[in-house]
Design a protein around this nucleic acid. Structure first.
Length: 835
RNA sequence: GCCGGAGUGGCGGAACUGGCAGACGCGCCGGACUCAAAAUCCGGUGGGAGCAAUCCCUUGAGGGUUCGAGUCCCUCCUCCGGCACCA
């Protein structure tokens, strides 16, 4: 039989989406708010394929938080935008042969359609599109802010070069030696590029992690990326064989600087190794070794970066013929070059301590260099007389333990000291001759932001013969990206814009003379480093962000996004906001008050990817089951912050749940509250549910929140009567963040004023109702469960024990001996220990 | 190698500060409705022994702490993520 009142998702969802649009339900007056709550989610790259189920998973979880906070009385601002510049978009445009200026608008339109259909609470009056000149004008302005603050500089440096994308990449965009975008092995080139000096902020980026409220895994990833190492810089004077004298050696002139985390091992440094690219190589190389050295350097230069950085590879290297003085021992030690020493970490040179570094050990073994242990466990050298001339057998590898109970040996007057203390003492001692200082080294590099590509904001700089590097004046912004027919990248490392003469030929803003524009564009990650600042100020075209608006809405209250951006976007935007804070533009230095990563969605145990052919298209599911069911299903799959496994069959659960809930609520709407006595059991169940759902929503535990709602609906259905409105009204409110359309419809059918999100308030629970008058106490005998007894809440041990001993099964197990001990946890458990 | 996170039924996953392991859902089995099927509804469902009451086993493996361990400690294995010839 056809039920007129049946739940038809498609119709209901269309109805409420229309309602939200017509009534501007999801827009708010940003200047008239009491409790601003900026609910941010990572804006998508608008791909041609359309919205990915992973996008929707991310957005839905964030949207639920936004709707929940709104019901709790927050003034929630939930915007969305499009990260439409960048290599990703451009590569796709190249592939399909359509100009990005045509492609992007249609992709964005498609995304918007899909997002609207999915029932997200976006304020569509405030979107951001990074390719809009009204937006990137301010991206360029930000570049100039950094330039003026001395934090942007152009320098010749070895940079990562992707031969397929034909552009440089930031370190953060090189994953395991390969291009983040296309997977091609990345090489190195010396090019003149614009860098942002993010390394100046290393310590602050690290230190603030202590107090910001972020997912712990994301913080860890950032810590690893910044890679702070505590140690020392040491200088090894370059010596001519037979000439230099350790007793007089001092100062840093003509010395090789190394960084080490283990200055305590310097007495064991038996040779130095320079990176083949090191600038002092020519200086130390003797004429008889010159040919071999240059051959080796050429071979290294020709090598693939991925290949070079493989740990398992056998060590190679050559002797330069040069020697240096070990400033601690006074001995001459040979200087080698080897490609296992990297120019882009530390100083590009190392002191080699083969006894206590596995790499150095292998190198020394292969090339017959001396190995001298200088650190030993205290237990090993106990009772030995002269620690200054002691050795021990290393076996076939370096001794690396580095525990507090190790002492120095073979280390002159430092022998016998605890290793770390000794290290400090040695640094102090060498510092007297200006040959050492305590130092910190970072893995983090300056952020290379130049891209030799087309699809990005032109870097707003002009080069003039007489004035040099000249920033484009603010009033001349934006430097509009010109339409060029042929936007293909150039193998020679020049931007496509370098072929557009009408673009780059320009008068110098200072002297009016002939000048040339910078033809590189900036990295997409600069666009996304600040987009959230723009959302509250989209209507202002004379400023990037309005002061008052920014004070009201920022920093962001809640940010939710994928972990893949732990070290790219999230690090860059923290850096940028710190800079803007320091130059007095912003009043805060961390952009996101709370950040939570969402998990990864997989399908039937496998990663979702195009190559696997298991891509899930949200449109199909939304069409078939409705957005509400699909949203609920996605959130039910597993803990939101850990991800879930998408299985087609599973969607039946949430689907049935919504049908049953619909039936219960429409039945209540039909019968009303009249004539039914309040049922204390149902009431208690309701209050328990409110507590659980509230706590779960606070911690983004949507899967268990849904389970709690299911249990409550099951409890309602177990009653012989129809539920009352009082029993279902809070249920509908709690459901609404998950399934907003059906909730609106039921809210209206219950006689309430739409929109629910304006007229409803999140329910509260009465703690008194959570407490049962009687509780079931598990009874254990020797830790094994033997019965449960029902006693009054707060019953004493005597009462519980007596009740327990009335149970036949318990008596049987106690019979065997005396009760020696009783563990009673009030209202929880009793354990009789029988011996 | 270093740093994080995780291993629980046939499956996805629950379990607060150490206190009834397996919530909720999928699937499966049985029943009702139906000429039949789908849908829906009701009941069952970790493994083993037993007619049953009940008992034994069970949270990656092995030890330990405890009256009591999925949860804490030690050793190990596997998987996922980050970093990685990083000095």
């Amino acid at each position: 039989m056809q039920n007129d009142d049946a739940y038809v998702a498609g119709e209901i969802e269309a109805k409420w989406q229309r309602f939200w649009n017509e009534n501007a339900t999801n827009s708010l007056d940003l200047d008239r708010v009491e409790r601003p709550y900026f609910n941010l989610m990572m804006y998508p790259y608008p791909s041609a394929e359309g919205l990915h189920v992973g996008n929707l998973y991310a957005f839905t979880g964030a949207d639920i938080n936004g709707r929940y906070q709104r019901l709790r009385g927050e003034d929630v601002f939930e915007p969305i935008g499009f990260d439409a510049f960048g290599i990703h978009s451009e590569n796709h445009a190249l592939k399909v042969g359509v100009h990005p200026t045509e492609l992007i608008p249609s992709n964005i339109a498609n995304f918007e359609r899909q997002l609207r259909r999915a029932g997200l609470m976006y304020d569509w009056t405030r979107t951001v599109d990074t390719t809009d000149p009204a937006y990137y004008r301010w991206t360029q302005w930000l570049f100039l802010q950094l330039y003026r603050a001395g934090l942007a500089e152009k320098k010749e440096a070895p940079v990562n070069w992707c031969p397929s994308c034909k552009t440089v990449l930031a370190n953060e965009q090189v994953i395991a030696g390969r291009c983040e975008r296309c997977g091609t092995a990345v090489g190195q080139r010396m090019l003149s590029q614009w860098f942002f000096k993010i390394t100046k902020y290393s310590d602050r980026l690290l230190d603030n992690l202590e107090w910001i409220d972020w997912s712990e895994t994301t913080k860890t990833a950032q810590r690893n990326w910044i890679g702070r190492s505590q140690g020392a810089r040491l200088w090894f004077p370059i010596g001519k064989p037979g000439v230099a004298d350790s007793s007089t050696a001092s100062g840093r002139e003509r010395a090789i600087e190394v960084f080490t985390t283990r200055p305590d091992t310097i007495f064991g440094a038996t040779f130095l190794v320079l990176s083949p690219e090191h600038p002092l190589v020519d200086q130390v190389t003797t004429s008889d070794r010159a040919e071999e050295v240059s051959t080796y350097r050429a071979a290294t230069a020709a090598q693939d970066l991925t290949e070079r950085r493989k740990v398992e590879r056998a060590k190679t290297g050559v002797f330069t013929g040069g020697v240096a003085l070990n400033p601690a021992t006074g001995q001459q030690i040979p200087i080698w070059i080897a490609d296992y020493v990297l120019m882009d970490y530390g100083t590009g040179a190392i002191m080699s301590v083969p006894a206590h570094d596995q790499r150095d050990y292998e190198f020394a073994t292969d090339f017959g260099l001396p190995i001298m242990p200088v650190v030993a466990p205290a237990s090993l050298v106990e009772g030995e007389g002269d620690l200054t001339a002691l050795s021990f057998d290393l076996g076939s590898e370096a001794f690396l333990e580095h525990t507090p109970d190790e002492i120095l040996i073979n280390s002159g007057r430092f022998s016998g000291m605890q290793a770390d203390d000794g290290g400090q003492a040695i640094v102090g001692w060498l510092a007297e001759r200006d040959l050492a200082e305590a130092a910190v080294n970072y893995r983090l590099h300056d952020w290379c932001i130049s891209r030799q590509r087309y699809w990005g904001p032109p870097i707003p700089i002009v080069y003039c013969e007489s004035c040099g590097t000249v920033p484009v004046p603010d009033e001349d912004l934006p430097v509009v990206l010109p339409y060029v027919e042929d936007f293909r990248p150039d193998i020679g490392g020049v931007s496509p814009l370098a072929r557009a003469e009408e673009f780059y030929r320009v008068d110098c803003p200072e002297c009016g003379g002939e000048a040339r524009r910078e033809t590189d564009v900036s990295d997409t990650f600069l666009d996304s480093a600040w987009y959230f600042l723009r959302y509250p100020s989209t209507e202002f075209d004379d400023r990037p962000f309005d002061d008052a608006r920014t004070r009201t809405w920022l920093p962001v209250a809640s940010y939710i996004g994928g972990e893949e951006h732990s070290v790219l976007h999230l690090l860059y935007s923290r850096f940028l906001i710190m800079v803007l804070h320091d130059i007095g533009i912003l009043g805060f230095e961390e952009p996101y008050k709370r950040f939570r990563k969402h998990g990864l969605l997989i399908k039937e145990g496998a990663k979702i990817s195009k190559s696997r052919g298991n891509v899930v298209l949200p449109d199909d599911y939304v069409e078939r089951y409705g957005a509400d069911t699909f949203r609920t299903y996605l959130m039910f799959l597993g803990p939101y912050q850990e991800g879930g496994d998408f299985r087609d069959r599973g969607i039946a659960g949430p689907e049935r749940f919504l049908y049953r809930l619909w039936d219960s609520v429409t039945a209540a709407a039909a019968s009303g509250d009249g004539g039914v006595e309040p049922d204390t059991d149902v009431e208690k169940a309701l209050h328990r549910t409110i507590k659980r759902v509230t706590e779960d929503f606070d911690s983004l535990a949507y899967n268990t929140a849904i389970a709690a709602l299911m249990e409550y609906v099951n409890a309602l259905r177990a009653e012989a009567r129809s539920p009352t409105l009082a029993e279902v009204r809070p249920l509908v409110i709690m459901l609404s963040p998950l399934a907003p359309h059906i909730a609106e419809e039921l809210w209206e059918r219950m006689g309430e004023e739409p929109s629910l999100f304006d007229t409803a308030r999140w329910p509260s629970y009465d703690p008194a109702l959570l407490e049962e008058a009687e509780v079931d106490i598990p009874v254990q005998v020797n830790g094994k469960l033997r019965a449960t007894v029902r006693v009054g809440r707060g019953a004493s041990q005597e009462v519980v024990q007596e009740a327990a001993l009335r149970d036949e099964n318990v008596r049987r197990h106690v019979e065997s001996g005396d009760i020696r001990k009783v563990i009673h946890v009030p209202d929880r458990l009793i354990n009789l220990v029988v011996g």
